Simulated scan of single mutants.
Amino acid sequence: MITKSTLADTGFENLSRFAAIFVFLLLAAILVSLGFESRDTINQYGFSFLTSSEWDPVQDIYGALSPILGTLITSAIALLIAVPVSFGIAVYLTELAPVWIRKPCSIAIELLAAVPSIIYGMWGLFVFAPLFQTYVEPWLIEGLGSLPVIGKFFSGAPFGIGLFTAGLVLSIMVIPYIASIMKEVFDMVPPLLKESSYGIGCTTWETIWHVVLPYTRAGVMGGIMLGLGRALGETMAVTFVIGNSFALPTSIFDPSNSIASALANGFNEAAGLQKSALIELGLILFLITTAVLAASRLLLFRLSRKEGRAS
């Protein structure tokens, strides 16, 4: 006998199934539309579009290597700075901070996430970049530029704007997202687990490393991936401070470009082959983001398979 409750359950199940399928259809539609609109450059350049750094709209010659490298380098710099800082903030707010300061600090972090990206870009260009050019870059070039192997990454002229400046501004932008998620998942750890760890003589660091992090591994990785997604796709802040140069960088202080900033600067007046090249850049960014998310899921899967095994 079919009742109203059964009909409601069936309707909800079908609606949920449609919502899940709709997400995949939407992603497929985006992928197909980007591929179709970039068919001109795909047919003309093929794989060489990814390996060429020449971008000359006058001669109708385009290559994506410089924006791809700029996107990956600035995102890597942002994560290298943001993840340790976010981890420290989350540990302090959940384990070390007095109770009275935890709520105000949490609200302040969330407010940083609400600041528009263009504000970060203007601050980076007019305040941070001149200070960095005058004080920080010369000091880093003098101290690290002469070192073997890594010295070439810290050489060159102190422009103030460039890859490192963009990466640092990005790190400030993604810290609120990563820190907020880390704090929330750290708060979800059952107090009994941490009390048991302290009871057998573990220090705070040992408790965090051996109890809290394994318990919250998926949440922490999700927060990092959220920050990475924000860094990969950020447009206005990066456009202000990266320098917008299609030349291949020789150090992290050189002006460069990212996929998002290239799209922001060129899409308004693009036509013909240039428009197709910019759309293919969007397709590449879409594929990079998908690959990063897939790699993170694979990493979590491999880590979960090791749980419970004897060491």
Rank of each mutant, 00 (worst) to 15 (best):
P84N: 03
G160L: 02
F240R: 04
I252C: 09
P214L: 02
S5A: 15
I279T: 00
E37W: 12
S261A: 11
S75F: 05
Q274A: 08
L193M: 15
T207Y: 06
G151I: 00
I200D: 04
E206T: 09
G151P: 07
I42T: 11
M236H: 01
I42L: 14
G167N: 03
A76E: 06
V91R: 11
Y177F: 13
F22W: 13
S52D: 11
I119T: 11
P130D: 04
A28P: 05
W55I: 08
P191M: 11
L300D: 02
G160A: 04
I259C: 00
L93N: 02
S251N: 04
S261P: 08
E206I: 07
E37P: 07
A113H: 01
G282P: 01
A78F: 04
D60E: 15
D187T: 11
L65Y: 06
I2V: 15
I259P: 01
I21T: 14
K103R: 13
P214M: 06
G63W: 02
T289E: 01
W100V: 15
I109V: 08
W100Y: 15
L112W: 09
I161R: 06
S5P: 14
V115L: 05
F186W: 02
F164K: 00
E110A: 14
S196W: 10
M225A: 10
A166Q: 08
V115M: 05
W123Q: 04
E137V: 12
